[in-house]
């Protein structure tokens, strides 16, 4: 018996060609080639640049970026930008996604269009529009004055308020979309069942709706954080040099002072920060949505 078994085992593994090209492998090829050319190679060059300067191998860039309080402050600024934008978008976006998913089908189409229409407008146009709105003689100051909230026009442009207002405006749709797509698949009978078991609206939300929509929340957070932490146009137009971010330092390093080593080092730090935060948030959110699934 044993010998027979061993014999079969010897002949059992089918001969595999070194590179087996089945249909999915062929389909992934164009994307793979594109990403290698457009992403992997540039990132490799960037990483290489971060470790060398005109004189050869060097850690000068990293020493500056991670050692100089000025640059550490800038990294902190970027993190704060990403964090506040993400939290703001989540606080506004989650209820919006919920309402959207529970709206009657026809209204849903309309609301969906209203939320995603802004995505079709260029960020530059949108941001300039916001800047005009927030000028001293802009509509926001006019409104606040006439409603009696303020005595004289406030400075709004080039403040952090303007920055976060603009950032959340730009990134909100990216938060709503993934949450909505998970929320609409949530069986409304689950909340009915929770209510019939004596769970009030708060308990039902915390124990049923939130855990089951957590995958959408994580996707939204990852998306919004990783893009907003690297935002360049909106901070540049709404607050400018008063609030320097990693992106702006990179742009200055490459375009103005031509210090490729500094720019590349900052870019690598930003990449590491963004990837770390996205992965940790996914990791911490996973147990919440999967609790009890084991076994």
């Amino acid at each position: 018996m044993t010998t027979i078994g061993m014999e079969t085992q010897v002949t059992a593994p089918p001969r595999r060609r070194l590179l087996q090209l089945d249909a999915p492998a062929i389909m992934v090829l164009p994307g793979l080639v594109f990403m290698v050319v457009a992403f992997a190679i540039p990132v490799l060059i960037l990483v290489a640049d971060s470790f060398r300067d005109a004189s050869g191998l060097s850690l000068a860039g990293y020493r500056k970026v991670l050692g100089d309080p000025y640059y550490i402050g800038i990294i902190w600024n970027s993190l704060q930008l990403g964090l506040i934008t993400t939290i703001g978008s989540l606080l506004i976006g989650y209820p919006a996604a919920f309402a959207l998913s529970r709206a009657p089908a026809r209204l849903q189409v309309l609301l969906f269009a209203l939320i995603f229409l802004p995505l079709t407008v260029s960020i530059i146009v949108k941001t300039f529009g916001l800047a005009i709105m927030m000028r001293r003689d802009g509509i926001l100051n006019w409104l606040l004055l006439n409603l009696g909230f303020i005595e004289r026009p406030m400075r709004l442009v080039f403040t952090e308020f303007a920055l976060y207002f603009g950032m959340i405006n730009v990134f909100l749709p990216l938060m709503i979309l993934p949450i909505y797509s998970v929320m609409r698949q949530l069986d409304p009978r689950l909340t009915d069942a929770a209510a019939s078991l004596g769970a009030g609206p708060v308990t039902t939300f915390l124990r049923v709706t939130l855990p089951l929509t957590m995958p959408g929340v994580v996707a939204g957070i990852s998306l919004v954080f990783s893009i907003s932490v690297a935002a360049y146009v909106t901070p540049g137009l709404l607050i400018g040099d008063r609030f320097m971010t990693m992106s702006q330092v990179m742009a200055k390093a490459y375009l103005n002072i031509r210090d490729f080593n500094l720019g590349a080092s900052m870019a690598v730090v930003m990449l590491v920060v963004a990837v770390t935060i996205v992965f940790t948030s996914t990791y911490f959110a996973e147990p919440a949505s999967r609790r009890g699934r084991k076994g």
């Binding site: 069942a193 009890g292 076994g295």
Partner: peptide
């Protein structure tokens, strides 16, 4: 369809 909570045991 029973509406059991899929995330709970």
């Amino acid at each position: 369809n029973y509406a059991l909570f899929p995330h709970l045991s």
